[in-house]
């Protein structure tokens, strides 16, 4: 299928807006990029980009392969801690550490996938939750405090000055944006590939996918590995942004956030979970700012309303409506022409 520029236009506009955003805010507030709101807003968006990639990695499982995981934070946390330990204590250079994280996450997700993907649905979710809980206990354990910092987390990760977010915030902003765009394009490529189509077949009807000749376990492990690597890379970037890795990255709450972002944005739509990350993060920030500590209650209500009235998420529901509108328009046109 060929696509016109018009199909890509919303994406290009969004990207252009994100490129211009720091400068626009700086211009509007009259502050330089490294001061005040201009500086702060970049930080907020950097977190959005990181979480967008994390949510997207979650959706490879949930939206594209139909696998529900409650342990996805394990991979995010693995990336964060691996980066911290390798760079701070093993004194590895950043690029080498990142290559190592890819290998570590691939092995980890391979082992977990092989062990737990034999069970389905909510049973798989519970097994992944167990794995993530074990990892959470390990990073909080005082036994490994010299490497993990136990409950306090691992702080003071040395990041090269050129991309140190404390020094060069705008450079880091564009690094995080480029990362998000690159992963978006990569996931789009994967989802449309022969393997990605097999994932869709598994999501739709795993028994039939097996009967037409797909070794579904192997393809589910493949999806888990790719998802795990991307989540770990997001975790590594998160550690670079915070210059630390904390137990919070491994928490079940981190997984639930990815789940919420995916559902709010629209699972299986690629851009949806990324927008969901933006909505959740920005809504959380502003509700907290305006309402104080009751913001989570209000957010809960908003979430319920979204699920009721935007059942396929923002992007999913938009696409369904668009089809309805087109059908309605065609029907009307057909009547007129008669």
């Amino acid at each position: 299928m060929t696509k016109s520029i018009r199909d890509h236009l919303p994406y290009l506009l969004l990207l252009a807006a994100l490129v211009v955003l720091p400068f626009a805010i700086s211009f509007l507030t009259g502050e330089p990029l490294n001061k005040g709101i201009a500086l702060f807003s970049q930080g907020l968006m950097i977190q959005v980009f990181i979480l967008a990639v994390f949510a997207l990695s979650y959706d490879i499982l949930m939206g594209h392969t139909g696998i529900l995981s409650f342990g996805h934070a394990l991979f995010f946390g693995t990336g964060a801690y691996a980066l911290g330990i390798l760079v701070k204590y093993a004194h590895w250079s950043l690029p080498v550490a990142i290559l190592a994280i890819i290998v570590i996450a691939a092995l980890e997700s391979f082992v977990i996938g092989i062990l737990s993907l034999r069970v389905h649905g909510v049973y798989f979710a519970m097994v992944t939750l167990a794995f993530a809980t074990v990892a959470f206990i390990l990073v909080e354990a005082t036994d490994f405090k010299q490497w993990t910092g136990a409950e306090d987390g691992l702080h003071g990760i040395p990041v090269p000055d050129a991309i140190n977010p404390a020094i060069h915030r705008t450079e880091f902003y564009f690094l995080a944006l480029a990362f998000a765009v690159a992963i978006f394009l990569l996931v789009k490529l994967f989802v449309d590939s022969p393997s990605g189509r097999v994932w869709a077949a598994i999501r739709e009807n795993e028994a039939r996918a097996t009967s037409i000749g797909f070794n579904t376990l192997a393809f589910k492990v493949q999806a888990t590995i790719i998802s795990g690597i991307i989540a770990a890379l997001a975790g590594a970037l998160n550690a670079m942004w915070n210059l630390s890795a904390t137990p919070q990255t491994m928490e079940v709450g981190t997984t639930i956030n990815a789940l919420l972002m995916t559902i709010i944005g629209g699972s299986g739509t690629i851009i949806g979970p990324m927008l969901g990350a933006g909505v959740l993060q920005l809504l959380g920030y502003f509700l907290n700012l305006w309402l104080g500590s009751i913001w989570q209650l209000v957010f809960g209500l908003i979430y319920i309303l979204l699920v009721l009235f935007v059942p396929y998420g923002i992007v999913g529901t938009w696409r369904v409506k668009q089809l309805d509108w087109r059908a309605a328009w065609r029907a009307r046109f057909a009547r007129v022409s008669k």
Binding site: M1, L189, F190, D192, S193, P194, S195, G196, R197, V198, A200, A201, A209, I212, G213, F214, F219, Q222, I226
Partner: peptide, 24 residues
């Protein structure tokens, strides 16, 4: 796509992640 997947299943390209399925 239902039918195409079944044809794809019998081929050797199932592990390809980097090319659009429509290219096959």
């Amino acid at each position: 796509e239902n039918v195409r997947l079944s044809a794809q299943a019998m081929g050797r390209d199932n592990w390809n992640l980097f090319a659009p399925a429509s290219r096959f």
